[in-house]
Amino acid sequence: MTLVFGTFLLSMMVLVAIAIVREHNLFVAVMLSAIFSLLMATNLFLLDAADVALTEAAIGAGISTVLALGALALTAEAEQRHRPKYRWLSIAIMVLALVALLYSTQDNPRIGDPEAPVHQHVAPWYLEQTPILIDIPNVVTAVLGSFRGYDTFGEVLVILTAGIGVLFLLSAGRNDLLPNPRRIPDNTIRLRQHTIPHVIGKLLAPFIILFGLYVQFHGEYGPGGGFQAGALIAAGVILYGLVEGERPSLALVPPNLLYGLSLGGVLLYGGVGIASMLLGGNFLDYSVLMTDPIAGQHWGLLLIELGVGMTVTGVLLSIYHAFAARDPH
């Protein structure tokens, strides 16, 4: 049954992707991409990847759609029709590549095959050792935060790069680095005039933020963690901003605070790593943080997940405000 359902969803994804490419109205294309992401999230969930599904739903369908809409408001609504040169030649090359790639998948292990190499080497070790070495139920959080915590540190820096980069790019030729609430005209888009979205949005926003906090501090037990929490909290605040307008939303969480959160999260994460170095361990070796290694791992995970959550919330909201508070010329 799952297989049939999965096949159906995957086919839908291909159709939606083709529809996106063919669509000339950019607003429609962005909304279709949101649907594409939701389908993707459902598929990921069917593949037993609950954490990834949650992230894809929050970031792919939620945040990136909002950002794209914000950019659309500042740029254009429709794509112009144009005919690229050498159209058929490149289509032919791509079809050839497609056939070659399809052919190369023949030797791939069948999906779900317990004998596949991926289920032999490192993965069983994680599943066996997590209860012993780290003692938390969610193995994904254990791998993400501890076994491959260094990757995650890199990932937080990736998101920080995007945050600093967007602020840098969008402050060209201006006097302020961060959006200034006092300079924003009070006529930005909002839903206050539309009763139903207004009421529902206002009701939902606090619950989304609350759920975000739950995901933040419950990530060791259930699906979720800093990334998902950061994306959810950011989504909640963005919803508030869409309902009430940009100025009250900036007043609620000032840009300086968001900037501080973005940088503070990285400092917290790196600081945990440095602390473990000072205590005689390797970088990000949480075991040395406490006399009991397992307690040390717990504390380490808690702190670095908090750092991740801070940076993700801070950066996503900073980026959102950088678009939303900008006046279209």
């Binding site: 080497h121 490192v122 070790w125 050792q129 501890s146 076994f147 260094y150 990000l284 949480y286 075991s287």
Partner: peptide, 8 residues
């Protein structure tokens, strides 16, 4: 990194 031996 993190004192976990490679390849874990």
């Amino acid at each position: 990194m993190g004192a976990w031996p490679a390849p874990m």
